[in-house]
Simulated assay, not measured.
Amino acid sequence: MLHLEFAVSPEQICSVADLSLLEARLGFDKGAFLSRFPKQWFREVSERLESNLQPGQLDRATERLRQIQRSRLVAFGRPYEGVDWANAARYSHAIVPFHRAVDNTFNELPTLVTSINELDDADFIFETQFPRDASSLAQAGKALLIDAEKVILHDNFICLTKAGYKKTLLEMMRFCTKAEVEFHFFSEEDGKSDWGLRKQALIEFSGRMPVNIRLFWYRSDDGGSGFLHQRGMFTAKGGLIYDRGFEEPNDHAQRATLTPISPMPAGMLVSNAKSYNTAQQSDDFKLVGQIWRSHD
């Protein structure tokens, strides 16, 4: 997984300044997110702030907290077992390690940290090189996929007549936990095989997808501008740039060769959300033919 998982005890959050620090340090564009641990993390922090802050401060704090909830908080379904947050965090960490866990009773650097104010730049170094096997390519985006309701992928070469793409996409879909998740694929039409063959491949592929997934396929043409040549995946919370796309190579040596995958900058996420707007035609490319849907 590219993104780093930080668990922060609700007792660490006492002020607007604490929330501002989390907001500044964490974000999918920064390669880090906040673990929803426990599930009631937002509620517990909200109640703590309500009891500690004056009304004017509370309004500011509530807005910051909601922004963190919308864009930085992810639930990984971790067990919460213990008499308090610190014990529960230690138990969960022993099963699947956090990148960093923060509580005022911890002092086991670099992983178990006493205060959010003690986190420095070295704690936020994330991996950007991944093998090109399907599992690794999908795993890089796990933190974005797990809570997603809509996933958009753009890759000018993507084609489901090729087994290497199908393997990666199925791996990505298996990370999605919501009851219904839409996958929207944008592929360049130029240079592709007959649409009838590709359509049949889509039909066969949709029969292998998890039951909670709905697939939408867009055949696109950028008129030679090169706009469609960037390859990436994004959701409402953030995105990733896949330097060499989503295909698992047939050659095992090529699978082992590392490829860059990096966080999508916040400005690019906004720009891509506008360009790949599934509700209206983009100014950056045109659609060829009708949108293919796996469900009516």
Rank of each mutant, 00 (worst) to 15 (best):
residue 3 H to G: 02
residue 12 Q to T: 02
residue 13 I to M: 13
residue 13 I to R: 08
residue 14 C to Y: 09
residue 17 A to G: 10
residue 18 D to K: 09
residue 24 A to W: 09
residue 24 A to M: 13
residue 27 G to S: 12
residue 30 K to G: 03
residue 35 S to E: 13
residue 42 F to N: 13
residue 43 R to S: 12
residue 44 E to V: 14
residue 44 E to A: 13
residue 44 E to G: 06
residue 47 E to T: 09
residue 54 Q to F: 06
residue 59 D to F: 06
residue 62 T to I: 04
residue 71 S to P: 03
residue 72 R to E: 05
residue 74 V to Y: 05
residue 76 F to Q: 08
residue 80 Y to M: 14
residue 83 V to S: 15
residue 87 N to T: 15
residue 87 N to I: 11
residue 89 A to I: 07
residue 92 S to Q: 07
residue 104 N to C: 05
residue 111 T to E: 10
residue 115 S to P: 02
residue 115 S to K: 10
residue 115 S to Y: 03
residue 119 L to D: 04
residue 120 D to L: 09
residue 121 D to R: 14
residue 123 D to Y: 01
residue 124 F to G: 04
residue 124 F to Y: 11
residue 129 Q to F: 11
residue 134 A to R: 14
residue 138 A to N: 08
residue 139 Q to H: 08
residue 144 L to Q: 03
residue 147 D to Q: 10
residue 147 D to N: 11
residue 150 K to W: 00
residue 151 V to I: 07
residue 152 I to E: 00
residue 164 G to K: 02
residue 164 G to V: 01
residue 164 G to Y: 01
residue 168 T to D: 05
residue 172 M to E: 09
residue 173 M to W: 02
residue 185 F to W: 02
residue 186 F to N: 00
residue 189 E to V: 00
residue 191 G to Y: 01
residue 193 S to A: 06
residue 195 W to E: 08
residue 200 Q to M: 07
residue 201 A to K: 07
residue 205 F to T: 09
residue 206 S to F: 03
residue 213 I to W: 13
residue 214 R to E: 14
residue 214 R to P: 03
residue 217 W to N: 04
residue 219 R to M: 09
residue 220 S to E: 07
residue 221 D to E: 09
residue 223 G to I: 06
residue 223 G to C: 05
residue 233 M to H: 02
residue 234 F to A: 01
residue 238 G to H: 01
residue 245 G to H: 00
residue 247 E to Y: 00
residue 247 E to D: 02
residue 249 P to Q: 01
residue 250 N to E: 13
residue 251 D to V: 03
residue 252 H to W: 05
residue 254 Q to W: 03
residue 262 S to N: 04
residue 265 P to T: 05
residue 267 G to A: 09
residue 270 V to K: 14
residue 271 S to C: 09
residue 273 A to D: 07
residue 274 K to M: 11
residue 278 T to L: 10
residue 278 T to Y: 14
residue 279 A to F: 12
residue 280 Q to Y: 11
residue 280 Q to R: 15
residue 280 Q to I: 15
residue 281 Q to R: 13
residue 282 S to K: 14
residue 287 L to A: 01
residue 288 V to F: 02
residue 289 G to S: 04
residue 290 Q to R: 10
residue 290 Q to P: 00
residue 296 D to N: 08
